[in-house]
Amino acid sequence: MLLIVCPYCGERSELEFTNAGEAHIRRPSDPSALSDEAWAAFLFYRSNPKGTHAERWRHTHGCGKFFNALRDTRTDRIVATYKIGQPAPMVETGAPDAATPRMAGRP
């Protein structure tokens, strides 16, 4: 059971919150200008990292506000929460995971 710090209300149990997926995926200002590939990327493709994940939560059974959180998807520990519109804070994300991929060859 996660313990989540709502930036408006403070520390509360996960039961009060709804996860709303990856954060910082800004809706394009002019979707019609996007290719089908770019639109599909916006709609469906996600970073799904093993490590720090920026994600959206809503304090549904509280203030009703959406906010962002940085959470370590290995431990589920929430490292920071911050309001919508604010940049993600710089946080110590710990040692890189053994499974963190590295790029080889050409992308």
């Binding site: 709303a20 959206r56 809503r58 549904t60 009703g64 919508i84």
Partner: peptide
């Protein structure tokens, strides 16, 4: 309601 709040708070503040 959640869908509307989502857009209002995050995309259309």
């Amino acid at each position: 309601m959640a869908h509307m709040e989502d857009y209002l708070q995050t995309e259309l503040p």
